[in-house]
Amino acid sequence: MFKNKKKQYFLLLTIFFIFSLSASAQCAMCRAALGGDGNKVQAQAVNDGIVYLMAVPYFLVAAIGYAIYRMRKKKKLD
Results as ranks from 00 to 15, higher is better:
Tyr9Ser: 07
Tyr9Val: 05
Ala45Trp: 10
Gln8Arg: 11
Asn47Gly: 01
Val51Gln: 01
Lys6Ala: 11
Ser24Leu: 08
Arg31Phe: 04
Ile18Met: 12
Ala32Val: 03
Lys74Cys: 09
Met54Ile: 03
Ser22Cys: 03
Tyr66Trp: 10
Pro57Cys: 01
Cys27Lys: 04
Lys40Phe: 06
Pro57Arg: 02
Leu21Trp: 15
Cys30Gln: 04
Asp48Ser: 06
Lys75Gly: 00
Asn47Ser: 02
Ala45Lys: 11
Leu53Arg: 07
Ala23Val: 13
Phe10Asp: 06
Leu21Gln: 09
Arg70Thr: 07
Lys75Asn: 02
Ala55Asn: 00
Ala45Met: 13
Pro57Ser: 00
Lys75Ser: 02
Arg72Trp: 07
Ile68Cys: 02
Ala33Val: 02
Lys74Ile: 04
Ile68Trp: 06
Gln26Asp: 13
Leu77Asn: 03
Leu21Ile: 02
Leu12Ser: 04
Lys75Thr: 01
Lys76Gln: 14
Tyr66Ile: 08
Ser24Arg: 10
Val41Cys: 07
Val51Thr: 00
Asn4Asp: 12
Gly38Arg: 07
Phe59Gln: 15
Met54Arg: 05
Ala45Gln: 13
Ile68Tyr: 08
Phe19Cys: 12
Lys7Ala: 09
Tyr52Ser: 09
Leu21Gly: 10
Phe19Gly: 07
Lys73Met: 12
Leu60Lys: 03
Asp48Glu: 11
Phe19Lys: 03
Asp78Arg: 14
Ala32Gln: 09
Lys7Asn: 13
Tyr58Ala: 03
Gln8Asn: 14
Met29Cys: 06
Tyr66Cys: 09
Lys5Glu: 11
Phe59Cys: 13
Lys40Val: 09
Cys30Asp: 08
Ile18Glu: 04
Ala63Ile: 11
Met29Pro: 05
Met54Trp: 02
Phe16Ala: 14
Lys3Glu: 08
Lys40Ile: 12
Asp48Trp: 05
Met1Asp: 11
Leu13Phe: 15
Ala28Pro: 08
Asn39Glu: 01
Val51Phe: 02
Ile18Gly: 05
Ala62Gly: 00
Ile50Arg: 01
Tyr66Glu: 07
Leu21Tyr: 06
Tyr69Phe: 14
Phe10His: 12
Leu13Asn: 10
Ser20Gly: 03
Met29Thr: 14
Phe16Lys: 06
Met71Arg: 15
Cys30Glu: 09
Gly38Pro: 01
Val51Ser: 00
Tyr66Phe: 12
Met29Phe: 12
Gln44Tyr: 11
Ala25Glu: 04
Val61Leu: 11
Val41Ser: 07
Ala25Gly: 03
Ile18Leu: 15
Gln26Ser: 07
Gly35Cys: 12
Met71Tyr: 09
Ala28Glu: 15
Gly49Ile: 04
Thr14His: 04
Lys3Ser: 08
Val46Met: 08
Gln44Thr: 03
Cys30Gly: 06
Gln42Glu: 13
Asn39Arg: 06
Cys27Pro: 01
Tyr52Asn: 04
Gly35Leu: 02
Ala23Gly: 04
Tyr69Met: 05
Leu12Asn: 11
Tyr58Lys: 01
Ala25Trp: 07
Leu11Ile: 11
Phe16Trp: 13
Ile68Phe: 05
Met71Val: 14
Val56Gln: 00
Asn4Ala: 06
